[in-house]
Structures are given as C-alpha cells and as structure tokens.
Design a binder for these strands. Structure first.
Length: 679
RNA sequence: GGCGAGGUAGCUCAGCUGGUUAGAGCGCAGGAUUCAUAAUCCUGAGGUCGAGGGUUCAAGUCCCUCCCUCGCUACCA
C-alpha cells in the first residue's frame, strides 16, 4: 500500500530581477519537471507549483537604478521568465507570483497565525534611518568604507571588494544611498522567529527521520544545526513587500525569506480550491526542488514555519542540486556570463530538448559541474542524433521501405528476439529506480539504453540482408523495432517531451501511460505509421564556434569593464594642508604572522624609523608572512589606532589595488631610510 | 579558523554495510557493416582510485595527518 496518495512538487521561486539561464534549469527546473512528468505518466495525483519571487531589497534597488517602480521590474521578469519556462516545457500547473492578491492574503494569514500563537519574539534594535528620506535603511541601502579592507563602496551587508559580510554599524563613514545623507541610528521593533527553540525538533526530524536525503543536503543541515540556530527577523522596515498585519507595524513588511516560501502555498491556493488537501493531509508527499543556496530555507526555516503553524505537512524530501558552471567559470548574471534561455532559442530554435538532454546528462547532482559548448555539441551529435535519432529513423524508414509503413506481422520469435524484448521491462525498472531516487543523470542513461538496444538488435539481425530471401523474418524484426520505438516514446517522455511528442505523431501512437512500458504489443499488426522526419539534427562546428566566440566577447568586455570600474577621481578637491595632515613614511616589515582564525589578516611589525609598531592588514590572501618580511613599504603612521580582531592596529599599509582586487605594495624603488616622509 | 560537500580512466560520472583481474557513457585506436543524419555494431588501449601514514588475512571503500575545488559560517566555538 503506497504511503502517499498524492504529490505536491515545488520548484524554487526564481527571483524576479533577472532572466533565467541554464544554471537555473539544470539545478532546479529540469529535475522537477522530469520528476513531475514521470509521476503524471504513472497516473499519480500530482501538482507542480512555482512562481516569481518578487519582493526583497535587490528589486527595489534595481528599480531605483532604472528610475521606475519595483512593480515595473517584477512585471518585466515575471513575464519573461514565465515564457522561458513554457518554451522549455517546464510543466508547472501554475506559475504564480508573490505580488498576487492571494499571496498577500496567504502570507498575512500565516504571519497572523504564528503571531497569535505567540511564536515570535519581539526585539527592539537600533537601525540606520535616513532622516532626509524619512525611512529606515536596508543594509543594502547603506554604503561606507569597509573596516577590513578600506574599500569605500562597501554595502551594509557585505563588502564586494574583500567579500566580508558586514553589519551596517561596522561601516566607517556610512552613507544612505537614497539621499546621500549620513544616516542616524534609530530604534525599531521587529519580530523574530526563534529557530533555536525548535532545534531539538529539527534534529530529530532531519538527522534521524530523513537520513535518506541527499548527502549534500543532509550534511548542510547538520552543519547548520551543529552551529546552533539563531532567532531570525521576519520583518523589515521597507515599503516593498507584504505589510506586517499587526497594529503599530506601519512601514514594516515581511522579510522576503518569510514570504517567499509561502508563495508555494499561495500558488496552490490560486490553482485549486482543494489546496488544503495538498498542504495539510499527511498522505500528501511534499517535495521541494531547489539549488544548494536554498537548503537552509527549505530544510530548516520553512519547515519550522510550517511546524509552528501547526496544520501543515512538512517536506518529505528536498532534492537540492549543486551549481552549474559555464566554460569553467561561475555563471554570473551581472557579468553576463550565462546562456540565457531566450537567447538559446534564437540560435537553436525548436531544440529545447537538446538543452534539456545535455543539462540532464550533466546535471550537478553531487558536485558543481561544467557546461561547455563542445560537450553540448558532442552529446547532441553522438548521442541524440547517432543513438536515439538514428535508431528511430532506421526502424521507421525500413518499415516504410519494406512494408509501406504498416506494422508487419510478427512471425516466429527467436530466442534472441525474446531476450531483446525481455530487456524492455528491465530497462524500465532501472530507469524507475533512478528516478525514484532523484538520480536523473543515471535515469537518462538507463533510458537511452533502450535506443542502444535497438541499434544493436538491428545490427545483429541485419534485416536489409534478409529482405530478399525471408521477408517474413524481416517483418518480425521490424515489428520488434517498432515496439521498441513506441516504448521509447513513453520512457523518454519525461526527459525529451518535445521530441517524444514528435515521435508519437510519426508513429501514430498517442498513448502516454508509463505503465505500458515493457509491453511488446503497443503497435498492433497493420497499424499505419506516418511521415518520417529526423528527430534531431547535427550541430555543426560553426554553430558552436559562434557560441564560444560570443562568450569570449563577454569575457573581453568584462575585462574592459574592469578598467572602467577603476574609481574615478574624487570630486572633492583638497588643499595641500589637507594632504600634509597625512604622515606617510617608509618602513620595513620586520615580522609578519597570520592573525589566528582569520583568512585575510596579517599582523605586521614595522620598523618605521621612528618606532616599532604593529599594523594589522588584510593582505593574507595575497602574501604569505615569509615572503614579505624584510620588505620596505609605505605606511600611514598618524592614522587613529583601531582594534581589529583584538589587536590594536597602529597605522595603515599603503597598497595599490588592481581592478580585479589584487594588491601591490608601494615600495620605495631603490630603498630609503626607514621613516623618510612621503610627500 | 570552524563546518559541510567533492577530489576514481583524456572528459562526465557509478562504485551499497571493506573481499576475486576498479566499472559505465563519451572521446581515442583497430576491425565489421551499409538499412540509417559517415550514423551503427564488435574489439582494444587508457586509472599506483588527491598525497602520506595506519587498522586488517584483505581498503577506492574504515581511522589519522596534509593538499586542492566549491559552499556555508566566523572579532565567538
């Protein structure tokens, strides 16, 4: 007796501030789509929900940059991405969005329920407030100088130069990006989800009850749990989002991480009046397909929300994939290092399945993987065209040639014939087993084995050699080939929906029932097949070279951008007196050691000519202590001391910084007496 | 620094609780074949399983140390 009566599949809500690329597809949407199609073919009760995640600060920032409202941004990407998914056959039952009315209601209710149950804790903290703009500032809206590396355009949550995560109060000389004014600290109240209280529950639920989760997911969860969970703010001072539905919470919205996963519920609600059956009946199997960046939200935070709400079921599995790289480099939206779905279709119209196939065969299931255009070409030409397309073509062309396109009768079955036919249910079983365990790469390979089997069968039986003397035997052989072909339409449907639709039309076989796979009588004797076309076409070198050239151009452009990215001359003019305030001297590094438990910091002892002093410097990623001892450098000696990692740093080493972040010492070329003023 | 996931043939990956000559697909070499989009089929070459120790009759598989990649996290562990 099956434990579950129905399935609810969710795919991570893509963030509506950029288009969809192959990384999204390989990581989340292709696996979820394959799985959903598989369940549907099996006749299961299954729905697959998704939608745009449309709240959060990055969207408001982008809107501000473009001088439009956030709604304009999310409308644009919602439509674009919705279409991209449709184009690639990602078969959502609904693709909704978190700005929908239903979602506002659902998210509000959800918050309200937890609020009324007393789940949240309230905390008042001090946050930066822009008095000119009259609003609290999200971390991203504050820039200032990074206390670690001195980068002047660090954000309140992170310094993009040195990668350190920051809190806004750490910034030196903070500024509001809205008005440019200096923000002030002001008290504000927020609600927190005390995750720490649910740690015992989570430990048992994940670490004991879900040992079957993928190792990367399980390990990541364990890591989080072992590090100890912290209460997490569920609200923010912002005007873009779902308003906190509580008295006295004006100007506050739900934090995007809180409202986004509720989007799954809203989407279901929008889809069907039966939504509660899918979310609240324990006989529903809930599965979240996500990328690895989302593990903590879907395994720790959202389940805690669902659990505390009380009436919801929890996910049974969270098959998260790793990341896909492109030609050796990380995919990056801002650096335009990606293959965008809409662009792919312009260059390879009608070839969605090729991309689906390659991304499945190369899916980053256990570790980050690399997509290369050469591999794309090879897989298309050597596998789709040569193995699958070719077998189908051979079977159908021979049938038309020898039997005018009518399925010939099956005569005497040889032992070998029987062995071949018996392979079909075995292949089905292996494919199922892989799919049931979310091993899509393996499943695809197993399914393709059927096409391989077909090719081998033809090569072994050689109907073209027999046709002159034993046409009846040829009929039997082709009958079997056609049974294999019709089985293929079912077996490969989850992976290659467009091509299998095409193939079904070619053989005039319209059934889509997974349970038929393995039978040897799908096409009855005399059944007429249709026009034969090629399922796939060869991809030529020039097409691939064009794609590689395009990426190369992006690479060059990015390098060019870096020089443009050099900071422009500062606007403020200073006087000589201003400059004279800086006491810069030559000095020699006499000792250097790594600051323990840091990645970037070196503790340097300098002979400045005037004294010996300690300076902490964030250069450990580029220089080892050994190689810099004895080096003469320039140092700002009258900088106010500052404690870094408990060590008092008395000055600042002067470094030149490349656009790509590399550091270079400023060295007196032919040596100078230590302590010589630099002027 | 801590934690997690990876490091297996040229490439992409399997190898469950340790057990005969370490597997698959692609690529490569040779052969067969011509129905088919020069596609297919057969055969073969290719790996000191990241490095070094250890446990064991026996280790890719367990333990220790180290190195590399990716991710999470950190003036805390």
């Amino acid at each position: 007796m099956p434990r579950f009566k129905r399935h609810l599949i969710t795919s991570a809500l893509p963030y509506a501030n950029g288009p969809i690329h192959i990384g999204h597809l390989a990581g989340v949407y292709i696996p979820s789509d394959i799985y959903t199609r598989y369940l549907r073919l099996k006749g299961k009760d299954v729905i697959h929900v998704c939608g745009s995640d449309e709240h959060g600060v990055p969207i408001t920032l982008k809107a501000r940059q473009e001088g439009v409202s956030p709604q304009v941004i999310v409308d644009r990407y919602h439509e674009l991405n919705k279409k991209a998914f449709e184009d690639f056959g990602i078969s959502f039952d609904i693709y909704s969005r978190t700005t929908s009315k239903v979602h506002y209601e659902t998210a509000s209710e959800f918050f309200r329920t937890l609020y009324d149950k007393g789940v949240f804790i309230e905390k008042t903290t001090e946050q930066f407030y822009d008095e000119e703009a009259g609003q609290f500032l999200a971390d991203r809206y504050i820039t200032g100088t990074c206390p670690h590396c001195g980068y002047e355009k660090a954000y309140g949550d992170q310094c993009e130069q040195c990668g350190t995560s920051l809190s806004p109060t750490e910034l030196i000389n903070p500024r509001s990006t809205i008005s440019g004014s200096k923000p002030v600290l002001r008290k504000t109240k927020h609600w927190y989800l005390p995750l720490d209280r649910y740690e015992p529950f989570l430990r048992k639920w994940i670490l004991e009850d879900h040992k079957e989760w993928k190792t990367n997911v399980y390990g990541q969860c364990k890591s989080w749990l072992d590090q100890g969970l912290q209460p997490r703010a569920v609200s923010r001072d912002l005007d873009w989002g779902v308003p906190v539905p509580v008295e006295g919470a004006e100007g506050k919205v739900l934090y995007v991480w809180f409202d986004a996963p509720i989007g799954y519920i809203s989407a279901t609600r929008e889809l069907t009046p039966d939504w509660e059956k899918y979310w609240k009946d324990p006989s529903t199997r809930l599965i979240h397909f996500i990328g690895k960046d989302n593990i903590v939200f879907h395994c720790i935070i959202f389940p805690t929300m669902l659990k505390t709400e009380g009436s919801y079921i929890l996910p049974d599995n969270v098959p998260a994939n790793e990341f896909l790289n492109l030609e050796g480099d990380k995919i990056s939206t801002s650096r335009n290092w990606a293959v965008w779905l809409h662009e792919y279709l312009e260059d390879f119209p009608g070839q969605q399945d090729v991309l689906r196939y390659v991304l499945t065969a190369n899916m980053p299931e256990t570790k980050d993987n690399d997509f290369t255009w050469r591999d794309f070409q090879a897989r298309n030409n050597n596998e789709l065209v040569a193995i699958l397309g070719n077998f189908v073509n051979r079977a159908l062309v021979l049938t038309r040639k020898y039997f005018d396109g009518a399925v010939p009768p099956r005569g005497e079955i040889s032992t070998y014939d029987r062995e071949v036919l018996e392979q079909i249910p075995l292949i089905r079983r292996r494919t199922e087993h892989s799919l049931d365990h979310f091993r899509f790469r393996e499943a695809l390979k197993e399914a393709m084995a059927l096409a391989r089997l077909g090719n081998k069968y033809l090569a072994d039986t050689e109907p073209w050699a027999l046709v002159k003397n034993d046409k009846e035997r040829v009929g039997t052989i082709l009958n079997i080939c056609l049974q294999i072909t019709s089985n293929l339409t079912l077996l490969l449907e989850p992976f290659l929906p467009f091509s299998m639709q095409k193939l079904r039309e070619m053989v005039h076989f319209e059934k889509t029932d997974w349970n038929l796979i393995g039978r040897d009588d799908l096409l009855p004797e005399g059944h007429q097949i249709g026009e034969v076309k090629h399922l796939f076409r060869k991809i030529e070198d020039e097409e691939i070279e064009k794609q590689i050239a395009r990426l190369q151009a992006t690479r060059t452009e990015n390098e060019g951008n870096n020089t443009i990215k050099l900071p422009p001359q500062k606007e403020e003019e200073i006087t000589y007196d201003d400059f004279a305030k800086l006491d810069i001297r030559t000095a020699t590094i006499v000792a250097a050691e790594k600051v323990p438990k840091t990645k970037k910091l070196l503790k340097l002892t300098l002979d400045t000519g005037i004294d010996r002093r300690t300076v902490v410097s964030g250069i450990a990623e580029f220089f080892s202590p050994e190689e810099i001892v004895g080096k003469q450098i320039a140092v700002l000696v009258n900088l106010a001391p500052r404690k870094i990692r408990g060590i008092e740093s008395q000055g600042m080493i002067l470094m030149a910084e490349d656009p790509d972040g590399r550091l270079h010492f400023i060295v007196p070329e032919d040596g100078a007496v230590n302590g010589s003023p630099v002027k």
